[in-house]
Computed example of a mutant assay.
Amino acid sequence: MLWNIDLTLVDVAQVMRAAYAEAFEKVTGSPLVYLAPTAGRTDSEIFFEFLARNDVGIDPDTDPLPDFTDALGESFARRRDRLQAKGRAMPGAEAALAAVGRLEDTLQSVVTGTIMSNAVAKLAAFGLDGHLDLSIGGFGSEHYPKASLIQFTRMRAEEAHGRAFPEASTVYISESVRDVEAACIGRATPIAVVSGSATESQLRAAGAVHVLDDLTDPQALLNAIRSATEDPGAT
């Protein structure tokens, strides 16, 4: 069972925006005036879109991405004490994680566009990290598309636990169209939650058969998981 983090399990957008702005200006010397869509994107994708939208050129002989991710981690770490005041766990997130954790032979982790240090901090701020095996998760610090991160996470789970985690039994839960598409490419069954900017119809058009309004009904989530894993093509 794989989870996206932002707007699926937590909402810390205010703190994240401030960290992005500080890290971007530190690395480029230019203020971050124009933001970019973040849903379903990795931090590396977001950085390069920031460059394009703010018309900031870079030296073709240098790679500013490692400096940006380092600066982003440092900037976010300085703001960790603001997460609970300015952010929140998404409604039902803790109960949903606990309910899934009680399923037999089920392992939970994350596939997120956020770099690892920031992902761990986001979850820990709201006591959600204890439900997840973050040692095998897929993070934005790996600089791979999310479809690849889903596959890598499955392989790491198999290596760490010494057993198979079949594609047909792998589920990815997220609120974004791009993540639903990534799940389909990465051979996981998407379960979508209408907790971000995407509508139910947009999520279904992207490939989500199972769509929930939110995470406040653990039984509805478990029913969707059972349907997705027992018969991935079921409606």
Rank of each mutant, 00 (worst) to 15 (best):
A125W: 06
A168T: 14
V33M: 11
A23S: 10
C184H: 06
G101S: 05
S75G: 10
R178E: 14
L221N: 10
M155A: 13
M116K: 15
T153E: 01
R187C: 09
Q108L: 13
V33I: 15
D61G: 14
V15M: 01
V209D: 07
T199M: 09
P91T: 12
I136V: 15
T112Y: 01
A89M: 11
A208M: 09
P190N: 03
G137H: 04
G233H: 06
D231G: 04
S30V: 06
P66N: 06
A52H: 11
E167G: 01
E25S: 09
D179Y: 02
S169V: 02
G196F: 06
R17D: 11
K122N: 14
V10I: 15
T42R: 00
S201G: 03
L32G: 10
P37T: 05
R80Q: 13
F50C: 06
V177R: 14
P166I: 08
L97W: 11
M155W: 07
F76D: 00
P145V: 01
Q108R: 10
V180H: 07
D231I: 00
V120F: 12
V193W: 09
S109A: 13
T114W: 02
K26D: 01
V211Y: 08
A99N: 12
R156P: 08
D70C: 05
A198I: 11
L72F: 15
L9C: 13
A23W: 00
L134A: 07
E142N: 02
A160Y: 08
M116T: 10
V15F: 05
V120S: 06
A220C: 04
D231T: 11
R88A: 13
L221Q: 12
V15N: 02
S174W: 07
A89L: 09
A77F: 06
I173M: 14
T199Q: 10
L9I: 13
